[in-house]
Design a binder for these strands. Structure first.
Lengths: 190, 190
DNA sequence: ATTCTATATGTCAATAGTTACATAGGGTTG
DNA sequence: CAACCCTATGTAACTATTGACATATAGAAT
């Protein structure tokens, strides 16, 4: 079983839905920490069905193409729960920006500044998006953090991770810019 | 050109070396943010040579197998420098632990606690390793941060990123454990 | 009118990365 | 004396992921 398979099972554990719906979820909330597009999802659903972890029924539609609504099976729920508490091994980081930072000494610092300013901006924006989602979620639950056993609990945990991650990343980019400006001999900061 | 290709060029820009040496570097300092093992490196070196970004000369050895020392060419250095200041697009995060956190509500919180405690420990350890390397690096340069244009500058930047990353990650894991314990109805914390 | 977007499901080719297989001499540990 | 580790270079099979191709209808925008 792949992580994508578990991601799909997890979504189906909340609500039976179509491959198309799953693809939408893999764009927006889940996509913040695990992405997949439909070309990966449809074959994976077929595999899950072959292993009897999901079933589907065709829903005929008049104005739109027919769809297959997938439902998680008892066996699917069982294997999902087992995975959820199984240990996670090494999350090897692969970060192109950090790789570039490592070799920075080879190029004109003034050129690098633009790169890191742009990345700082990107991460600040992502941070703002996460914070907005959190505010909206809090408004919906009257400011209280969501209780365990409720599906939104996971959303709350992962949002906090996203916020911490982006804040750290943006901060580092800005710090790199500072370091570069300090180290630049001619044309002092601004 | 792949990121791995640039990673290898960057290492060769510091010092001409063999594929085996490059594989070692891809384990240790570079491996903190970009990994590759020898089965990927040897074919990549062949490709770099086919594009005339590197050359090699065979060094015959008596007690050990002969080796090929690779040297970066002018063209290689040029393309590397161009890449170093080129914009980085989306670094999509794929994190199994965060994925599991999202679906946490499905399982007994007491079981999840173990998972996050283990991960907190892992990231605390990684953090300690980075801090140790930084201390040793600082000792070698008499406490002063390294100057730009010096190869260690990149190491300094990336170490700071690693430290920030691991500290944030460990902190989040510990916070999740807290949240889980607070949310557990029976068997109150410890 | 035409183009674009949304719904809906699929296949196919290419790339990147992991793991195992393969060879081979020298040194170390049990 | 056997089993492993280090040096050193390669190949082969497999898996995961991306991007493009393919089809089809309805509605909205240009």
């Amino acid at each position: 079983m792949t992580n994508l398979g578990y991601a799909l099972l997890g979504l189906l554990a909340r609500e039976a839905q179509s491959g198309y719906d799953l693809a939408q979820s893999m764009k927006m909330p889940v996509g913040f920490f695990w992405q997949a597009n439909h070309s990966q999802i449809y074959p994976e659903l077929a595999r899950l069905q072959a292993e009897e972890l999901v079933t589907h029924q065709v829903v005929e539609q008049h104005d739109r193409p027919n769809k297959k609504i997938y439902t998680i099976t008892e066996a699917g729920l069982e294997i999902l729960k087992k995975w959820l508490i199984s240990p996670v091994d090494g999350v090897p980081v692969r970060d192109e920006l950090v790789l570039k930072a490592y070799y920075l000494w080879l190029v004109d610092p003034a050129r690098s500044v633009a790169l890191f300013e742009q990345q700082a901006h990107r991460h600040r924006q992502q941070l703002a998006q996460y914070e907005k989602i959190l505010r909206e979620g809090k408004a919906a639950t009257e400011g209280k953090p969501p209780t365990l056993n409720h599906p939104f609990f996971g959303g709350y945990l992962t949002l906090m991770r996203g916020i911490g991650y982006e804040r750290e990343y943006a901060g580092w980019c800005e710090w790199v810019v500072e370091q570069l400006k300090l180290a630049m001999p001619d044309r002092p900061a601004e």
